[in-house]
Simulated scan of single mutants.
Amino acid sequence: MTQTVGFLLNPVAGLGGAVGLKGTDGHVAEALRRGAVPHACDRAVQALSLLRDDDIAWYTCAGSMGEDVLERAGIDRSTVLYRPGVPTAASDTKAACRTFLDAGVDLVVFCGGDGTARDVFDAVERSIPILGIPAGVKMYSAVFAVNPAAAADLIRQAGRIPCRDSEVMDVDEEAYRSGRLSARLYGYACVPYIPERTQGGKQVFEQQDEERAKDDIAAFMAEIMLPETIYIIGAGSTTARIMERLDLAPTLLGIDVVQNGEVLARDADERTLLALLDEHPRAKIVVSPIGAQGFVLGRGNQQISPPVLRKAGLSNLIVVATPGKLAGTPLLYVDSGDPALDREIGDSLQVISGYRIAQRKRVLHPE
């Protein structure tokens, strides 16, 4: 039986990630001014090209909001139900989803981030399943596949696999840009679910033991830091504790660069990181996975891009996390945007979880 899928793309999703804007809502012009390159279309093509031979009837939006992506993916037969304005807006996403509902589609697939997920949910609520191809900056909602390949698998099996109630999160981007995470539950969507293919929602761990573990990790990292080596310190409260141990003020939700106990750059974007790596070839990258979701790369730290990772060297990637976070994070994922680079990371990573203590954690690469 032919499956019917409504597909739409937010063309500017994730535009602010690599340039350090921590989100794109209301900041498209600034992202472009900083040299941001749109990548949401490429992410969608990665997923949809795997479905070009499947028995799926595609309904979509005209131009850059869907039709162009399907053509690039090798899907030359689709039905355009909605023509968006130029530039596209949140109202177009909602209107397109309503036309999909009227057409009786089995599934709504969107490519974007948390903002797009909210707009889709506003239109369809729990009437039909939805699924996100991840292309935003943060993606704290649990309605996304873990990467484009996993999205293709979920779309292919939708209708034959269970759906689960998954959180749609409302993240205050202005607070996020100022270094404060303010998120609330927006609603529960119906999402096709396969373990290890569908991402979980972000969890925050704040127990007293967790705080002691962060201190232990910070003490160990401060002890092993090498002179004349730059340290690219990723986002999160665990990595922030490392900065505090060095008597430096951290950018909680951004990327800082330190060397010899001094800050070389605060809240750095991809361009700044590449320039510093040209000047200082000895480098380490320190990141912490998102709690429960398990993403080491590709969620909230797109400044640490594939070019940055290759220039620094994957052998210089250091992952830190508390035992409590690791206990609630069964698997790690990487979704840098470069599948070949992701595979080079291998099937496991060593994670520093205390003072001179580490755990080996499995990395899953859904293909």
Rank of each mutant, 00 (worst) to 15 (best):
M1D: 10
V5Q: 01
F7D: 09
N10K: 08
N10G: 06
P11T: 00
V12P: 05
V12N: 10
A13M: 10
A18Y: 12
V19F: 05
G20P: 07
K22L: 08
T24P: 09
D25F: 03
G26M: 04
H27P: 05
V28Q: 11
A29D: 15
A40Q: 07
C41S: 11
A47S: 13
S49A: 11
I56N: 00
I56M: 04
Y59I: 04
T60P: 04
C61L: 03
A62Y: 07
G66L: 03
D68L: 15
R72K: 15
R72S: 06
A73L: 02
I75P: 01
I75Y: 03
D76G: 14
D76P: 07
G85P: 05
G85L: 09
T88W: 08
A89E: 14
A89L: 09
A90C: 10
G104C: 08
V105N: 01
D106R: 05
L107M: 08
F110A: 13
T116V: 13
D119C: 12
A123L: 12
V124N: 06
P129V: 08
P134E: 07
A135I: 14
G136H: 03
V137Y: 09
Y140T: 02
A142P: 02
A142S: 11
V146M: 02
P148E: 06
A151W: 04
A152H: 05
D153C: 14
D153I: 12
D153A: 15
Q157R: 15
G159M: 07
R164G: 14
E167Y: 12
E167W: 12
V171D: 02
S178K: 12
G179D: 04
S182C: 13
Y186L: 12
I194Q: 13
I194M: 14
I194W: 12
R197S: 05
Q199K: 10
G201D: 04
Q207I: 13
Q207C: 13
E210D: 15
K214S: 10
K214C: 14
A222S: 15
E223S: 13
E223M: 11
M225C: 09
M225F: 13
M225Q: 09
I233F: 04
G234A: 06
T239A: 03
I242G: 02
I242E: 00
R245T: 00
L246V: 10
D247F: 13
A249E: 15
A249T: 15
T251F: 10
Q259H: 05
L264C: 08
A265K: 08
A265Y: 07
A268C: 08
E270D: 09
L274Q: 07
A275G: 11
L277Q: 06
I285Y: 02
S288I: 06
P289R: 00
A292C: 12
L297A: 00
G298T: 00
G298Y: 01
G298M: 04
Q302M: 14
P307I: 00
V308I: 02
G313F: 02
S315G: 13
S315Q: 15
I318A: 04
T322Y: 11
T322L: 05
P323E: 08
L332R: 01
D335I: 00
G337W: 00
G337C: 05
P339Y: 01
I345V: 14
S348I: 05
Q350W: 06
V351N: 08
Y355K: 10
R356F: 13
R356G: 01
Q359W: 09
K361Y: 01
R362T: 15
R362L: 12
H365Q: 05
